[in-house]
């Protein structure tokens, strides 16, 4: 087994452990237990932080997209979502089109 395979196997086990532990802990609690409300708040906050970081300060390849294009992508998606009354797929395509268009215009 190579090091990459070993790292992957151990990570996969850790992921399954996290998921099973979450189900087990919640299974032992009342559905209205504060810990469950806390876990939902942490999950929602993590998701929001993920979106803010992806737009404002991404890592990896997304960082090669200039900030104005990322902002245009977000604004285009949200505008599409509002105008199309909450239809996700067309709104998503609006956002990606806005990102590509602004990137092309500014030549970044």
């Amino acid at each position: 087994m190579t090091e990459a395979e070993l790292a992957l196997a151990l990570t996969a086990l850790a992921m399954l452990g996290l998921r099973l532990a979450g189900l087990a802990v919640a299974g032992a609690l009342r559905p209205d237990h504060p810990f469950i409300a806390w876990a939902a708040a942490v999950s929602g906050a993590t998701l929001a932080a993920f979106v803010v970081l992806a737009v404002a300060a991404p890592g990896g390849m997304l960082a090669t997209v200039p900030l104005p294009a990322r902002l245009a992508g977000l604004a285009g998606g949200l505008a599409g979502y509002a105008l199309l009354r909450g239809r996700l797929l067309p709104a998503l395509l609006c956002g990606l089109a806005a990102l590509v268009a602004v990137r092309w215009i500014i030549g970044g």
Binding site: A54, P58, L62, R70, G73, L74, G77, A82, L96, L99
Partner: peptide, 19 residues
Amino acid sequence: RAALLFANPLYFALLMAAD
């Protein structure tokens, strides 16, 4: 590829807008 990577955060932004 960089544009494709934006699809996921944008999708979650739209879901959050709904919430």
